[in-house]
Nucleic acid binder design. Structure first.
Lengths: 125, 125
DNA sequence: TGCTATGTTCGAGATTACTCGTACAGACCA
DNA sequence: TGGTCTGTACGAGTAATCTCGAACATAGCA
């Protein structure tokens, strides 16, 4: 994988939602998204599953790490969620104890149109 | 990256071309293409460049390893071309001394529609 | 205060990938 | 026969990644 983009904390507390959400964790800006990083992040079956499940089964809102029901140690999950966030695939916000994730659908469709469709049509092995 | 698919030598000497081409080197069949392998292969800038250049500048036919003009040792190039072939992104045929490559456009568009468009619209860093 | 639940950070070990030099193989040609 | 040119195979060193255990941090609650 290529070098990750530098992080910038985006401030949009009152812009993208009526309710004031917690600020997102550090993530690359839209213009900093790198195709090679995104590809590298999706080169792992577990991470592919995370993004796909978030896209298709996330009824209304962000989901916690435990919502996925993976039988893996917590530190492993932290690792993969962090990889997805640093590549720009998901946005994470801290809600008290829980850290909830959502797919950066708008940004990704804007920058890499068709990419999320590939993930959605992926059938797990 | 996930485990690579098993190889099968496809025999299509008289099917896909009027002229009889040399048989392709071992490569995964269409049904064996794995999204995570493809993503992993495209997670490298040099390999992204290879596929993109083959797509956009390959006027009529397959191209050799040296056509790209990379300033890298030969063994490194072999490594990356092999990675692309094993992931199913390119097809390689042996023409005497030269090993020529082309993108598996039809297969990829059939299996992962939109993927090659992402590669084509990639701007190199 | 103490317990529980969520998730992080750190570090180690194992595995995989990348890079490259060297040696080798085969086709072509003088 | 010998030289050149294309590209492979193998191995070593380096770097990155994956996986996981252990210890830690914090919010909520009784």
């Amino acid at each position: 994988m290529a070098a990750a983009a530098q992080y910038v904390t985006t401030e949009n507390s009152a812009l993208d939602a009526p309710e004031n959400l917690p600020d997102p964790l550090p993530e690359p800006l839209i213009g900093e998204l790198q195709l090679e990083d995104v590809m590298g992040a999706l080169a792992d079956p577990l991470r592919l599953t995370i993004v796909r499940k978030l896209m298709l089964e996330s009824d209304s809102y962000d989901h916690t790490c435990g919502w996925f029901g993976f039988d893996r140690p917590k530190s492993s999950l932290t690792h993969h969620f962090k990889a997805l966030r640093q590549a720009g695939l998901i946005r994470q916000r801290q809600y008290g104890l829980e850290r909830r994730s959502r797919v950066r659908t708008e940004d990704l469709n804007d920058r890499f149109p068709g990419l999320l469709d590939l993930v959605a049509s992926w059938h797990e092995a």
